[in-house]
Design a binder for these strands. Structure first.
Length: 436
RNA sequence: GGCCCCGUCGUCCAGAGGCCUAGGACGCUGGGUUUUCAACCCAGAAACGCCGGUUCGAAUCCGGUCGGGGCUGCCA
């Protein structure tokens, strides 16, 4: 069994193509088959190396690998259509010589029989039948003698020995043309599988008009690859038993193209983000720390100082539990960085009370006389002072939170204070105590 | 317009004639926990597009209809 994907480098790797790649990859891996990646760049105008790079990079980022094709090589050369024009032209001219194609205004058209039917079995849709009456003669070589997609793609599938063509449903109606070409090449027909399309929230084919729907855009938003991988698996397929969170291994074990749904799926960012949060929480300590530090450095566009990193490490676990994406990190930890610190005045007004002031003053004094400033020590001081003054946690804690983090929303208070450190905490509390 | 595909909660999926007074997940609403925010727990609202047929029995099979989508390029 040999499957392939053939992305056109006319844009970054799109979520829809990534899902198609994923299903091809899963099926190949599930059946000990081969997976091939080639680049369909017959459209010289719209193709670019930058996009090609993006596609390859993001396939890898998703954890997909391939056995033959672009970058990894194989017996068929570059696996780029732009370098195989001679081959396509050779085939096209043979068709022309055999009377299977004819010239029209310079372009070469493949002659579709007037009568007859093309039938094939589609793995997700069952019996398909097209009346050749409805299929027009189609261009296989443009006036500039460059091959079109139909020709190049079909010749490649034949030359590379593809046995199962699984692609988007948008090409379903082109399949009769491809079958005609394969027959003309006197080659065996592969199996066909037309995967349901991915839609945007408006129920239309996912595309640029839905915003940036590239894989790299989601990566940039702080989505981790395992989460996107898992989420995409669920678009048109499920492993059964209501299982929703699963890894690559399980996906490979359970995956079967025969169980893929024929109906389109809407790409729902909300569920992706939820799943991403689940995955982030599950990240191993070292993996999370790496992403944690990198994400902050990306946000502030500079390297972190050692002091900052030491502070950040103390809060990382608390932050890990509170993320939807990696990009949410900086907002939660910026009070720990050596950056200008500011207290949100609206938040301050809503928590600043006389009781709170007194509480902070007393706590600050006790903080000053502690030596170790350990987490449990901080908690003990803050809780016992609450009892001393007989005030509610909210009164004492919220004012302190705003004073040291700048806002009413932050990681857990004791951890935040612990991470910030004794000197900084005392200084910030001092700034907010009115009669000091 | 023509050809083709599709049709279970708002969304993703379960359901392959009786186990369905339709199940899970996201989201949403209410409640609990709580120092904020999350997380977590509990509860709730929420769907078989419609009409016929087959059958003792249909979300499941068939037909029609309506609705949505794709293709209809010298794009892929």
């Amino acid at each position: 069994m040999k499957l392939r994907i053939a992305p056109s480098p006319t844009g970054n790797l799109h979520i829809g193509n990534a899902r198609t790649a994923l299903f091809n990859w899963l099926y190949a891996r599930a059946n000990n088959g081969e997976f091939l990646v080639r680049i369909d760049d017959t459209d010289k105008e719209r193709s670019s190396e930058e996009y090609e790079k993006n596609i390859i990079e993001n396939l890898k980022w998703l954890g997909l690998d391939w056995d033959e094709g672009i970058e990894v090589g194989g017996s068929e050369g570059s696996y780029k259509q732009s370098s195989r024009f001679d081959r396509y032209i050779e085939v096209a001219e043979e068709f022309e010589n055999n009377g299977l194609a004819y010239r029209e205004e310079g372009a070469l058209r493949f002659k579709v029989p007037e009568e007859g039917e093309i039938k094939f079995q589609d793995i997700v849709r069952g019996s398909m039948s097209f009346n050749l009456n409805d299929v027009e003669d189609f261009v296989i070589l443009r006036s500039d003698n460059s091959p079109t997609y139909h020709l190049a793609s079909t010749v490649d599938d034949v030359d590379y020995g593809i046995t199962l063509v699984a692609r988007g449903e948008d090409i379903l109606s082109s399949t009769p043309k491809h079958i005609l070409l394969i027959n003309a090449l006197q080659a065996p027909l592969p199996d066909f599988c037309h995967l349901p399309l991915l839609f945007g929230p408006d129920g239309k084919k996912l595309s640029k008009r839905h915003g940036d729907t590239s894989v790299s855009a989601y990566k940039d938003k702080g989505v981790i690859s395992e989460a996107l991988f898992n989420y995409m698996c669920l678009l048109g397929w499920a492993p059964g038993n209501d299982l929703e969170i699963f890894d690559k291994q399980i996906a490979i074990e359970k995956f079967d193209l025969n169980n893929v749904l024929p109906n389109p799926a809407i790409f729902d960012t909300k569920k992706l983000l939820w799943m991403n949060g689940q995955y982030i929480r599950d990240l191993k300590d070292g993996d999370f720390e790496k992403s944690f530090i990198e994400s902050i450095q990306d946000s502030i566009s500079r390297e972190l100082f050692e002091q900052e990193i030491n502070r950040l490490k103390k809060i990382k676990h608390a932050v890990q539990e509170r993320l939807e994406t990696l990009n949410d990190i900086n907002e939660q930890v910026k009070f720990l960085l050596d950056e200008p610190f500011e207290v949100n005045s609206k938040d301050w007004e809503s928590v600043n009370t006389n009781e709170g002031q007194e509480y902070m003053k007393n706590v600050r004094n006790k903080f000053m006389s502690t030596k170790s400033f350990k987490l449990n020590e901080i908690e003990e001081i803050m809780r016992s002072e609450l009892e001393q003054l007989n005030i509610k946690p909210k009164i004492g804690f919220q004012i302190t939170r705003v004073a040291i983090t700048g806002t009413k929303i932050s990681p857990p208070l004791f951890e935040s204070i612990y991470a910030l450190g004794k000197e900084n905490t005392i200084a910030r509390m001092g700034e907010s105590i009115e009669d000091l």
